[in-house]
Design a binder for these strands. Structure first.
Lengths: 365, 365
DNA sequence: ATCTCCTTGCAAGACGTTTTGCATCCTTAC
DNA sequence: GTAAGGATGCAAAACGTCTTGCAAGGAGAT
């Protein structure tokens, strides 16, 4: 269902009503009209130079109290608002950051944006958010666009991007990578919720619970959090003295549909698994779809687990046992990491932030 | 569950690992280093003036083919990218729009953003998105911030904003209002999915189905789509020769929790309703929570309907009968309306775009 | 061959800020 | 009474682009 509107042709049934061409304005155009008055105007009215106005605003040099209040008064009266553009041109700071995510439709990412805004907005920064559909072309296009816009920094959840793609950008502006990507100091800080550990923990839980054949459905190799979550799966198995054959690992997409398809393959085999650990909740929901279709009881015949704990995880039947990926907190950590570099004087050391995750046991396992 | 991380104090359990302070770069610093070369540099290398370079780029004046290719070659070689800031300062266009939404956590809005990007990004525009939590302070702060950033236009889903708040902004930049707000030509175009009709249709369906006492749970008055959806409720009832007493209408918030609380009030009364139409899906899911708690069967004892058809609507049990609010299509319409004004020469007529909606019948009614 | 007009290119002035070097005036200390 | 220094304020130069007025050259028309 997630991808419904992506795949279906959207019919353009619209009604349009045209109204009056020009409405006579029923407010007086006053001097307080927005955004058309500059510092020169303020300076003139206050009887000072633009320099002084600037200093009143920035506080970089002392201004006599009397002139100060006079200037502020004029500013208030005129509704003057400094032009961020012009300021940015001069100061080389746009107070804007870019956020690159693969799929805003995955509820995890809007929550990350919230967290990011929690810390960035109070500091005066705002985010341009770009949805890349997880395609390399769009990821690259977005990176280029952000460069021409001279953003002060970026938070990215890269899917297809290679180390080489990112390197030049990482040199130009502070970069924070979101998710369980590879550790790489050249590519900026990393904020994750410890996907390898989280998945390992989940698989350990499945084994303790008595599952004998545990399968794994992940995303494509080298995309986003894929590799590290899969590593966690293998690690937990290895610790228990087992090995998952290739037939028990399927890599598709991070969507509900992909999950259903992968599950159908696994479950139609003679020696079907009795547990499936999924790389995210959407996939797990797809697995639930498949199980229902095949009349398998969950968790009786098959245990299913997800990852992220999006809202939907608690809404499906049976409710999903999953790994809590505290999206908002992750977003905040990204904001803090970025802010640290943006406000730092010198070079900051590379840092990796791991947000603690935990398992939430519900009905599916 | 939606509001979980909003309400709960988030514990800051983080692990941090510090790495090497400075990693020796393992790429050569080449001239293709990003974003540090300007038009002057390009002009010098190509042996022409900056004017010519600018003309090559903008095409506003013809440039000899030979110089043209030479300039382009140098641009390519240097990896030159025009500075959007400087350009914007001169041209008065930032190629940036603002998107104001009350709650990005409501899956409806991320989808709108997608639709918006569908049409805006190809045209070179990017969106700054701001989540206001539905509070007036944040809405106003955001409006002011966008003004200082000199965005070229805004798409807003206002909750608490009054006509007066918006007026000055509407005069400064093209505004598109999203949702079922009041018709008001001074406040910019309006894109809605016909909330009044949609709700009326739904209530009509409930009546045909045999419901005798239909109640309504909405959001607070004069916020977002509240009023028009509620109007639809009353209209459908009136058409059927009935009237809903005040005791059958409750106005709370647009959240799951608010829905549950309102439903508990309604359902604990002696003459409880046999159907509840809700102003959005989140509220309806809350009603389902309450019904379960009171051991009422849905739709046997109580029919429940939502509005928006967010993903979760089809995931809950029983699956929600709801009004499809085609978010992405709405987003696109917003983008188109905005683009129309942004690219128009003169004044465009006021327009209202109504996206067709429809009912999707599932299990809850 | 002369005149006109089109093509092509350049120089310089915006756009609205911040920043820096100087000038002035008033204290304060001697 | 004078020198030193702090407190204030101003003018002008940036930041990187687009735009406008003007000039030089070449082609076509008479």
């Amino acid at each position: 269902m997630i991808l419904k509107s992506l795949l279906m042709p959207i019919d353009n049934a619209e009604t349009e009503r045209e109204g009056v061409a020009h409405i006579t304005p029923n407010v007086l155009y006053s001097e307080v009209d927005l955004a058309r008055v500059g510092m020169t105007e303020v300076a003139a009215r206050a009887g000072v130079s633009v320099t002084t106005v600037s200093h009143v605003l920035s506080g970089r040099r002392p201004v006599a109290e009397s002139t100060r209040t006079r200037v502020l008064q004029v500013i208030e009266q005129l509704g003057y608002q400094p032009d961020t553009l012009a300021r940015g041109l001069r100061t080389r700071r746009t107070m804007t950051v870019g956020l690159l995510v693969p799929d805003l439709t995955n509820p995890f990412y809007p929550m990350v944006l919230r967290g990011l805004n929690d810390v960035l907005v109070p500091a005066g920064y705002h985010a341009i958010v770009c949805d890349t559909d997880g395609t390399r072309e769009q990821e690259l296009a977005f990176l280029r666009e952000m460069a021409t816009r001279r953003v002060d920094g970026m938070v990215i959840a890269p899917f297809q991007l290679t180390r080489k793609d990112l390197l030049s950008h990482a040199k130009a502006v502070p970069l924070v990578r979101l998710g369980d990507g590879p550790l790489d100091a050249d590519l900026g800080d990393l904020v994750s919720s410890g996907g390898e550990d989280g998945m390992a923990q989940m698989v350990r839980y499945l084994l303790e619970r008595g599952s004998r054949r545990v399968a794994y459905i992940g995303g494509p190799r080298h995309t986003g959090p894929s590799d590290r979550r899969e590593a966690g799966f293998h690690r937990a198995l290895a610790e228990a003295g087992r090995v998952a054959g290739d037939d028990l690992v399927i890599r598709g997409g991070f969507t509900r549909d992909a999950g259903r398809e992968a599950a159908e393959v696994l479950l139609n085999r003679a020696d079907r698994p009795d547990a499936i650990a999924c790389a995210n909740d959407l996939i797990a929901i797809g697995v639930l779809d498949a199980a229902r279709k095949l009349d398998l009881s969950v968790p009786g015949d098959l245990a299913v687990t997800g990852y992220d704990d999006i809202d939907a995880a608690s809404l499906v039947t049976p409710a999903l046992t999953t790994v809590v990926n505290p999206a908002r907190e992750v977003g905040r950590a990204c904001g803090e990491a970025l802010l640290r570099r943006l406000t730092a004087d010198g070079a900051e050391p590379y840092r990796e932030v791991v947000i603690a995750n935990s398992i939430v046991r519900r009905d599916s396992a």
